[in-house]
Design a binder for these strands. Structure first.
Lengths: 165, 165
DNA sequence: GTTGGAATGTCAACAAGGCTGACGTATTTT
DNA sequence: AAAATACGTCAGCCTTGTTGACATTCCAAC
């Protein structure tokens, strides 16, 4: 291996990878902290946040679709969904074309909570993005995308397209 | 605001921030997946991984120090440590200067598991780093650092210095 | 020296939120 | 009519977070 080759690969050393791993761990804590505080006020947890987020993002989604995205069992999701429906944050309608499906949407109250949570989480993300600059943000996202499982990468790409429409 | 200003801030739109948030969520799943499989074989969870990782990184650390880094209650950590000690992965020595302290180190067996876990997690990180390139990796780390809480940022910087010695 | 407070760590009990397995009920597809 | 799909639910388990009560040790003030 030539000197320039090994130079070019210096960012792949064990030490560098370990730094990446630890950065990921510490940053994720910051990432969840602010919404966690809001959720705690209402006796909810992160699972509720995830459900609210993705129902808000894809209104009219089905339970099965949500299961794929969240990567939990239906029993687990059902428990959370049950409380959200009981608390009138999520609304269920029987599918029109296929009446086995349950179409999920946020109620006005659900949208309000979704905004609160998103605002809190986005504030920190915005600050980090601004301090790091656009180039860094592009890199941040590139690395994260490559770190996902292929199936999730596709999910992610699909959401991006939904965004652009 | 001039056109060039608004152009420069395009990476801070709500849509971009949302993409960042979702990327973070999906990527973290990938990030934990591979070690999770190894841990499951021995009946351990992520909490065990975190403890093993940081004890390996800072041999002779105390319980309190570990608590600061992991951000859980001492009761929670204690339960995990108890199993790791019983399974002979972590060794405890009473502090020499202050006999209230418990100094933690990995046993040879603990180091072996630590390496297995690190190898699994690093493999994915290395692949992502390589595909994204050195510039992206720098950006990735810059954004993550700015996303941490200030206290954790300091912890992170301290570990980096330890690295460089 | 003794004593009282602070720091360190342990044990017990509880809750959230994952999981598996089994089963029931509509509804659609074949 | 039979098979497959979408969803809900009951029961029970595990990990890992929490709070509360308690034991040990150190240190500093008296």
């Amino acid at each position: 291996m030539s000197d320039s080759d090994s130079d070019a690969l210096l960012f792949l050393t064990d030490a560098q990878l370990r730094r990446g791993i630890e950065a990921m761990f510490f940053a994720y804590r910051g990432f969840t902290e602010d919404p966690d505080r809001i959720l705690a006020l209402r006796g909810y947890g992160r699972a509720h946040h995830r459900a609210i987020h993705f129902v808000g993002r894809m209104p009219g989604t089905t339970v099965t679709n949500l299961l794929d995205i969240l990567g939990v069992t239906k029993q687990s999701l059902n428990r959370i969904l049950r409380t959200l429906i009981a608390d009138d944050l999520v609304e269920v309608r029987i599918g029109e074309r296929d009446r086995r499906e349950r179409r999920l949407t946020l109620t006005p109250e659900g949208r309000a909570l979704e905004r609160d949570l998103a605002d809190a989480q986005q504030a920190r993300m915005r600050a980090a993005f601004r301090k790091a600059g656009p180039q860094a943000v592009a890199g941040f996202r590139a690395v994260l995308e490559h770190m996902m499982d292929p199936a999730l990468q596709r999910q992610f790409a699909a959401m991006r397209e939904r965004e652009e429409r």
